[in-house]
């Protein structure tokens, strides 16, 4: 279900209809720099999943865009806590840490350990199975806007409760992806219809709806409920918050600084199973 919060977005869109928007200069506060962990161990269904990369960076002031944020010199390990197997991620000296030996096993819990600047950062995550994603075609009338193209999908949610999912869509040629998340709270055990449509942004023209010939890449992840809670806040805040959105907050992930808890890291350690697909509009 594209949830009810979406309606609040719509209420805002009504206000936007009569309002005017412009980009302005604003002074913002600057917080201390933190370590950012992008440890997304995604196992594509049907592959071995042996090759995995973890990225370490630092945070920057909000309007700073050109600084080098790569973090090198850290020691990065992932341990399968059910089997005891340890995977060492090799420092590539560009902020990336890579292994070719990772063994994803459904239901297993993994622990990340990063040693950096004399501090130890850890996180745990469990790997869940992803159901198949069936792309059933395209339409115009099923989405939010009748004039715009959307791609239609079907997912069979398994019987047990608490399944959580993430979609990452990217229109080929575009810089930024789109994210959508959901869980089976209202649809447990059902066949779930999902569509993805890009709402045309008429005023700024920064977003353009799909046209025939466009290709969209779709990644569909089974994620943990904890990661879903994290993503809900994060996705809500992408692109900014308006007056009918929740008051924005600092998003806190699962990477804990064992040495100095106040110096926690941003980002998340996730272990997921993913199906990847793409669709070309006709």
């Amino acid at each position: 279900m594209k949830n009810i919060k979406f309606v609040i977005l719509l209420y805002s869109s009504l206000i936007l209809t009569i309002s005017c928007e412009d980009v302005i200069d604003v002074d913002v506060q600057n917080a201390n720099t933190r370590l950012v962990v992008e440890a997304s161990l995604d196992w594509e269904k049907g592959t071995t999943g042996n090759t995995q990369t973890i990225h370490l960076r630092t945070s920057t002031p909000f309007f700073e865009s050109d600084s080098n944020t790569s973090v090198t010199g850290a020691i990065v390990n992932v341990t399968d806590m059910d089997s005891g197997t340890e995977f060492l991620f090799v420092d590539e000296n560009n902020g990336s840490y890579t292994t070719n030996e990772f063994e994803p096993i459904l239901g297993h819990t993994y622990e990340l350990e990063i040693a950096y600047n004399g501090e130890i950062i850890t996180a745990q995550e469990t790997l869940n199975a992803v159901p198949d994603l069936n792309i059933i075609g395209q339409s115009r009338e099923d989405g939010f806007n009748e004039d715009d193209l959307e791609v239609n999908m079907k997912i069979q949610d398994p019987a047990g409760e608490g399944n959580s999912y993430l979609f990452k869509f990217r229109k080929q040629g575009e810089l930024l992806p789109y994210f959508e998340e959901f869980d089976d709270e209202f649809v447990n055990g059902n066949e779930v219809d999902w569509y993805f449509e890009i709402g045309e942004d008429e005023e700024t023209e920064k977003k353009e709806a799909f046209q025939p010939g466009d290709t969209v890449e779709i990644n569909f992840y089974a994620i943990s409920p904890e990661y879903l809670s994290y993503l809900r806040i994060l996705i809500n805040q992408i692109g900014g918050v308006g007056i009918f959105d929740s008051i924005p907050v600092e998003v806190k992930g699962n990477c804990v600084n064992e040495t100095n808890p106040e110096n926690y890291a941003y980002g998340y350690f996730r272990v997921t199973q993913v199906v990847k697909a793409s669709y070309s509009f006709e």
Binding site: E38, S59, L176, I247
Partner: peptide, 24 residues
């Protein structure tokens, strides 16, 4: 209101990190 006090790259996007509640 609450404004960001930092940003970082995560999953190909820039994530805003927000200052304490209503501190702007």
């Amino acid at each position: 209101v609450t404004y960001p006090n930092g940003q970082y790259t995560y999953e190909d996007i820039s994530v805003a990190s927000y200052a304490p509640r209503n501190s702007d």
